[in-house]
Design a protein around this nucleic acid. Structure first.
Ligand code: ZN
Ligand code: ZN
Ligand code: ZN
Ligand code: ZN
Lengths: 619, 619
DNA sequence: CGCAGTTCACCGGGTTCA
DNA sequence: TGAACCCGGTGAACTGCG
């Protein structure tokens, strides 16, 4: 820098200082703002090196009661017109930057001096922003945030810094738009084409060195038992300290740094797996203990979720080991992992994808593993669990992934042992049922079960001990013979003693059926046209709240109107499914054909002999 | 090695050979198996170097008709008790390893001699294959190919291997998806356009020679005027002056390299984001808050782009497409490598947001990858097959088994602790919320929060204190029990006092959620299928003015139509962003996937029980 | 009162068109 | 895509009759 370059009144550059124009001596009064030399740091080969008061840089930057942080003391900042001059030998790592600030009125004289270290690129190591040197220098062992300027002493032992900028992207899934610059995978990259269950995990995902890499990255290895894209715990921030024993450490069979480290893992990328880990070690993911069927879908793991959180006992989906990552269509029973969304309130009113099979229990083999060779051509597995979804007449929308039945196969309806007798039903193996249950003939072809105490069943009144009353229809009496006799009113009599009358009963409410399982029910004596005036106010067609007898049957207003309109229009419907729809309150609008058929089945007729029926009962 | 160390009868070490105990002379008979010196290669500073018969190593290893392959001739193997001795000067790359084997009866005398090359870590370069010891030994600083056998002496000081094998393998330009992890080149290093397997690796990126400062983009000089990840320059020279101070820099108080720098940006990397960036902006944040689905995609500049090319304001690619698209992520139609230049074939006719490749079928194994031949011309496949089977709308998670989408293409949404109560919500830790907030059940699965004063929510009326009303959906009541009770209307009562009614709520709008964090809300009495008929006429999906309940949720005409069309078409969408779009009136057209997801989330159903729900409330 | 018939707001489905 | 519109089914509420 030549003196001539500097016209600043109070420039601090050595020439200025030398000739007294700078702040070489005590200031008697506050200097005004100065225009400065704008020599660029490192741009020219500045050859002079001299020690200058440290506060030429520091104090001045520090002045005015608004201290700059070290972060602010960066070249980028200085270059914004604040630099007055700089001296550094070519390639030097130390040099001087003098920044010009108007001195504060009470500015003290320089008291400190020192060297402002510069990188050989002219940047201060205090400046921690983007720096590619790590990449360029092949510092794959870098544990710092991307774009971090490597300190000279940076080695493999340098501990990872915890503050990863990419953490700000926590809510973003995989190929998140703003991938950290140190990520070496292409965005949205997937596994190689012939990716199968046998495909070994991709060689160490370079991006894994990004240990703070949030959530799911596209190619999760098969051993990962975390939900894909699982969100980091809510309060997870860049400051979240490493969880001590990374759960993923148990994955020892994988040689290299396993591609999908849990997002909470704060260990070094290639941390050594514990020796005690064997191939027999269970996949050890750790869903929170509290996760259950009631756990809302997609909820974030509780804050308390740590590596010590014991894995929930057998996650059904875990048995699916032969599959590489979270297989797309997990069994709907599964309460774990990816995005399942079974509504809690499974009931007859539950929206479409509800329905857990009745027979499904903890003993039900969890999501049985598909054969390794399982393909789309794999023949159907005979008892598809989802088949118990009998309330869905048609091709049920979400059949299980293991279902190999034809897409629209008719769901067989399990026949439960229900023996009907007149008026009363004894429930013996259904502890939550009252011992005696009313049996109402809603029409001459349908019965309704309810508790013995209730004479009215309104939707608000859930019937027997909070449960909906059960409407049975279309069930054929004779099939009882194949069912064990469970005692009750007619205990010991056996099927032979059953009346020969045929009463159609269909068990429609699966969710309630198990309560009835083994129940003994008896009905008799009621003639084909008799019905109980004390029948609960339940629509015999759809199960909705009935308003009384309409067209010869206890129906709701809807079915009443529907039947009347159908009669009036002399309508002829065609079932869009298979003609065996079970009409419920919720689906009654979906198949007019079966609804009308049901109307007729339970005995509705246009020319109703209401008075006759009533007379028959009232005598 | 000292002579005294070697007690082997037929040891070949120089001292042994020297005093006749080794195979310095012709063998008259086959030597017996010998115990050997076990000096470790490279471990001690072996100082003697002597040429020894090559077959001291080779022949012996090769002996007995069961030749070891080159892979077997590795240190790891040799170290397994077979090495007899080795000589190498410290740091030498060449040395000797002598392995002791019993000579075969017909062993010929040494006929060949040679040097067995060693790396300076004592490894044979011939050995390149798998070994897990690196991981197990915590050698994260390894510079060798993954899975090789780590020599004992391998330390952090071992320089990275220079020859990147991956380069010889790659046929794909730039950031090819499967870059070998051992590649030590700069990420995203772009190979020349006609890059083939024969193309020699570009060792120093020509552009790198121009750069003086490291910067965030992996090795892009600041004066570079090309798009990031450009293929190397056209008229770009060192003389191209860097552009003057980026205006955005004036805003910035902290350096940051925002990962998603628009490709048209001509400023130096690491400049800050525009206007919204303030001093309060936490360091290293990435995307500007204002970046949304409306943000134009981060398209790449055309090939003809030169330093003089002014940044295009409207991305040319946008002119081809009818819908804005993912920003850093390119158009989902795109079949090119990331960061590609937009192909011309993108047209407005291309259906938006599809993803699956044509060859995608039920036979395609789950989680398969796009075919290699996947190009821009690959037509998108029509709606996900899985949807064609379903007759009922269903939430995504239970998609059809043959669906080849990733299990969870939508992001899990962190669930915040919100305790729902009827009608009112008290926000206690959300200072910007009014103390009392209305809670409207918009559907049976969604509620809308608003201020206590507003009974109507119009888009113009931003709701509570200028903020949009918050729509929550899909959240399950029961999880409240695991959440701290935050006071409010029911302060002190705790979860035990909560009604047993299950109300599904899911906090879907992340951007709004933080306002609700810790909020205490209470709701009661409303049954699972009830929803508030007095809910404000705002669309639960997008916030637009609602026209009533459609498909079981209060929605606008647009979302009604969209949902119906989606159901009818059995459409399957893929979010071009990250699957967590917040749907608003203005952007609802931009991401069908998230819009449909939101529809489902708030409880829209193809087969809804609209009137029943009405009845439940009106009764 | 019980029940058939009527009413009509509401909603699903479809169409048009800018 | 969505506003506007139409059409038809639906069912809660109502009317009227016995
Ligand atoms: Zn009915
Ligand atoms: Zn039907
Ligand atoms: Zn809407
Ligand atoms: Zn989206």
């Amino acid at each position: 820098m030549q003196r001539s370059e500097c016209a600043a009144r109070h420039c601090l550059c050595p020439p200025c200082a030398a000739d007294g124009r700078g702040l070489s001596g005590p200031e008697t009064e506050p200097p005004p703002a100065v225009s400065v030399c704008t020599a660029q740091v490192g741009a020219a080969g500045l050859s002079d090196v001299a020690e200058l008061p440290w506060d030429c840089v520091w104090t001045r930057l520090h002045g005015y009661g608004k201290p700059l942080t070290l972060d602010e003391l960066d070249v980028g900042n200085v270059l914004l017109g604040m630099i007055s001059w700089a001296l550094a030998p070519p390639g030097a790592r130390w040099g001087f930057i003098s920044c010009s600030f108007p001195l504060p009125p009470s500015a003290s004289q320089p008291q400190h001096s020192g060297l402002l270290p510069l990188t050989d690129t002219g940047r201060s190591p205090a400046h921690t922003t983007s720096c590619d040197s790590r990449i360029e220098q092949g510092h794959s062992n870098c544990r710092h945030a991307p774009n971090y300027t490597l300190p000279v002493t940076h080695t493999a032992d340098t501990p990872p810094i915890t503050h990863c900028p990419s953490l700000t992207l926590q809510t973003r899934p995989q190929s998140h738009p703003a991938r950290p610059s140190h990520c070496r995978h292409t965005p949205n990259h997937t596994l190689p084409v012939p990716h199968t269950a046998d495909t070994p995990p991709i060689t160490p995902c370079p991006s894994l060195t990004l240990q703070t890499h949030p959530q799911s990255h596209p190619a999760r290895p098969s051993h990962c038992r975390h939900a894909p894209n699982h969100t980091l715990p809510v309060p997870h921030t860049a400051d979240t300290p490493p969880i001590a024993p990374c759960p993923s450490l148990t994955l020892q069979t994988r040689p290299q740094s396993h591609p999908a480290r849990p997002s909470h893992c704060r260990h070094t990328p290639n941390h050594t797996l514990p020796v005690t880990h064997t191939a027999d070690t269970p996949p050890n993911h750790t869903l929170p203990v509290t996760r259950s069927a009631d756990t809302p879908p997609n909820r974030t793991l509780p804050v308390t979720h740590t590596a010590d959180t014991p894995p929930i006992t057998p996650c059904p989906s875990l048995t699916l080991q032969t599959r590489p990552q979270s297989h797309p269509a997990r069994h709907s029973l599964c309460r774990h992992a990816p995005n399942h969304t079974l509504p809690v309130t499974h009931s007859a009113d539950a929206p479409p994808n509800h329905t857990l099979p009745v027979t499904h229990s903890a003993d039900t083999p969890p999501n049985h593993t598909l054969p390794v060779t399982h393909t789309a051509d794999t023949p159907p597995i005979t008892p598809c669990l989802s088949l118990t979804l009998q309330t869905r007449p048609q091709s049920h929308p979400a059949h299980h992934s293991h279902c190999r039945q034809a897409p629209k196969h008719t769901l067989p309806i399990p026949v439960h042992p229900v023996v009907a007798g007149r008026g009363w039903a004894g429930a013996h193996s259904a502890p939550r049922c009252t011992p005696n249950m009313c049996l109402f003939l809603v029409s001459n072809q349908a019965v309704v079960f309810g508790c013995g105490e209730c004479t009215e069943f309104s939707p608000a009144d859930k019937g027997c001990e909070g449960r909906e009353p059960v409407v049975l229809s279309g069930w054929t009496w004779n099939s009882v013979s194949s069912v064990g006799w469970r005692g009750g009113l007619n205990q010991g009599q056996g099927p032979a003693a059953l009346p020969q009358t045929t009463v159609k009963l269909t068990l429609t409410q699966c969710s309630l059926l198990h309560l009835m399982d083994g129940m003994a029910v008896s009905t008799s004596a009621l003639g084909p046209d008799e019905f109980d005036r004390n029948a609960p106010r339940i629509c015999g067609v759809c199960g909705d709240k009935a308003t009384g007898f309409h067209f010869n049957a206890m129906t709701c207003e809807g079915c009443k109107g529907f039947f009347r309109r159908s009669m009036k229009r002399k309508a002829s419907f065609t079932c869009p499914f298979n003609g065996s729809c079970t009409i419920t309150k919720d689906n009654r609008r979906h198949c007019q054909a079966c609804r009308l058929k049901r109307c007729v089945d339970i005995g509705m007729m246009k020319e109703c002999k209401s008075t006759d029926a009533r007379a028959a009962l009232h005598h």
